[in-house]
């Protein structure tokens, strides 16, 4: 359980913004701005944040579906960051991704069986006939019956399509999966099916998940560790149970209190944040969050806090949280 499978150090992914300013040079968008992650084998690690915080870019940078700007990524003793095209392809057998939108992530002109068998054929892991058998088996595990594998994706509902997407990710027997908002496009009654499936498969296939989501309730259910991102940086990281019993960063607290109450008379002290998320092209000086923070001090405007451990496995990037916990 404690063997580290993925280690990310100081990962930065900047994009060049297309719109240039009057004075020529346009600022780059700091989608991911110095992130450290360490994920153990068998873990389900949650990455949480609002839209534009860089959580999806982080997931894609780790798989190098987006080229990171700098930093190091180490997967099971192999360097992902400097891997050449060929070794990257081999790595992708073991690192897979599940996408958010089950409607656009399946090629509409391929049959389901071909979609799921394709990774085996691309990696020359099986002959076409064998590949079909293996693909059928995985599809069956994911709840797509043998009889419908010759159909096209459009004949399936959203939940079933997401099962196909999961089967495609699993067919090469990967060890690590980035799941990018895997249920946010699905209906509530279907979400539970897919979340349960992901948990069953984790045991069956001994998988490690990086689970990206904006929904705290979902993350609480399926992860055992969690990191909260804000404007390209991790602001708090903890065991899921520790986090939900007492988040320390003011942003984490606000985020948790923003979740709609579960029952009408639940007494909820809500921290309503004012203002909007600043642009990642022009992040505030000092602590990224100080422009919306209800507690900020002069220090927060000047010095960006580091992510510092406050107790075992619990780190926070906030000047105030540090003080209060000491």
């Amino acid at each position: 359980m404690c063997e580290e499978i993925l280690s990310v150090k100081d990962l930065k992914t900047y994009f060049n913004s297309r719109t240039s300013t009057f004075l020529g040079k346009s600022p780059s968008i700091r989608a991911v701005d110095g992130i450290n992650l360490s994920i153990n084998a068998g873990e389900s690690f949650g990455l949480v944040g609002e839209s534009g915080c860089g959580k999806s870019t982080t997931g894609r940078s780790i798989l190098r579906l987006i080229q990171p700007t700098s930093g190091s990524i180490n997967f099971a003793g192999r360097d992902v960051m400097t891997a050449d095209k060929k070794s990257l392809r081999t790595l992708r057998r073991e690192m897979q991704m599940i996408f958010q939108d089950p409607y656009s992530s399946l090629n509409p002109r391929m049959r389901v069986l071909d979609i799921v068998a394709e990774p085996l054929i691309v990696h020359r892991l099986a002959k076409p006939s064998e590949a079909a058998t293996k693909a059928k088996k995985v599809l069956d595990h994911c709840g797509i019956p043998d009889g419908s594998v010759q159909r096209f994706p459009r004949e399936f509902s959203g939940g079933q399509r997401q099962r196909i997407v999961i089967a495609r990710a699993l067919v090469t027997r990967p060890r690590f999966i980035v799941a990018d908002e895997p249920v946010s496009a699905l209906d509530v009654s279907i979400q539970a099916q897919i979340l349960n499936l992901l948990q069953d498969l984790r045991d069956e296939y001994s998988l490690t998940y990086l689970f990206i989501s904006h929904d705290l309730a979902i993350v609480r259910t399926v992860t055992n560790r969690i990191a909260v991102m804000y404007l390209g940086k991790i602001v708090e990281q903890a065991d899921t149970s520790v986090f939900f019993s007492g988040p320390l960063h003011p942003y984490s607290r606000a985020l948790l209190s923003s979740v709609p109450r579960e029952t009408p008379d639940e007494d909820k002290k809500r921290i309503i944040l004012t203002g909007n998320i600043p642009s990642a092209a022009n992040p505030p000086k000092g602590c990224n969050f100080h422009t919306r923070c209800p507690l900020f001090t002069e220090k927060c405007k000047k010095i960006a806090p580091e992510l510092i451990p406050v107790s075992k496995g619990h780190s926070v990037a906030c000047h105030l949280a540090l003080k209060s916990s000491k």
């Binding site: 798989l63 579906l65 392809r89 057998r93 996408f99 939108d101 509409p108 002109r109 691309v122 495609r168």
Partner: peptide, 24 residues
Amino acid sequence: YSFIEAANSIGCSSIRILIKHILP
């Protein structure tokens, strides 16, 4: 479309992506 990104993530070569996934 994310099925192109998916093709990338399962390790398809550029030529395969062009011929199998985009051309059709």
